[in-house]
């Protein structure tokens, strides 16, 4: 088992994967996982368990932190038969989604599986996420005001 490294490439890869898994809807995650057909036996060590996080903002946007409210979060921890431990923390109350995300996190720590997970799960999900965000940006951009000045008077 590879150790959870201090800030190295593996940590960055896991973080990036978690960001994608958190961004795409559960249906798409499940569909993608099913299509990838990766064999992984994962035992649940903790959860899935739903709790709260206090969401913080900053005064004026960039000043001192303050608590805006709370959000539901579901976490899960799994262990592969080979020993790697994966974690997931996701907004919402979907336990299965958290378990699956934790399994993906554990697989990323296996040198022999990481590539497969990256190509078959994360790459398509990333494309999906990018497409969703691009569409949203383009829809907003279409509502941008183009000002034009009407000339008045002699000069």
């Amino acid at each position: 088992m590879r150790h959870v490294n201090r800030s190295g490439n593996l940590g960055e890869a896991r973080r990036a994967a978690m960001a994608v898994l958190a961004a795409v809807p559960a249906v798409q995650l499940h569909r993608c996982w099913k299509e990838a057909a990766i064999i992984a036996e994962a035992e649940t060590l903790r959860g899935p368990e739903t709790g709260l996080v206090a969401v913080r903002g900053r005064i004026g946007g960039g000043g001192a932190p303050f608590n805006v409210g709370e959000a539901t979060v579901t976490r899960a921890t799994v262990r592969l038969a080979t020993g790697e431990v994966g974690h997931a923390y996701l907004l919402g109350r979907d336990g299965e989604r958290a378990r699956l995300a934790a399994t993906v996190d554990a697989l990323l720590q296996r040198a022999d599986k990481a590539g497969e997970v990256e190509e078959q799960v994360l790459v398509p999900l990333r494309a999906l996420q990018a497409a969703q965000e691009d569409r949203r940006r383009a829809e907003t951009a279409a509502t941008k005001v183009d000002f034009f000045t009407v000339a008045r008077g002699e000069d």
């Binding site: 709260l52 996080v53 206090a54 913080r56 900053r58 946007g61």
Partner: peptide, 19 residues
């Protein structure tokens, strides 16, 4: 529900702006 912790302060400058 149990409390898992406090998030890092959100960065509204990096918002995916809709309006």
């Amino acid at each position: 529900l149990p409390r898992f912790g406090y998030t890092r302060p959100v960065d509204t400058a990096a918002m995916l702006v809709e309006r």
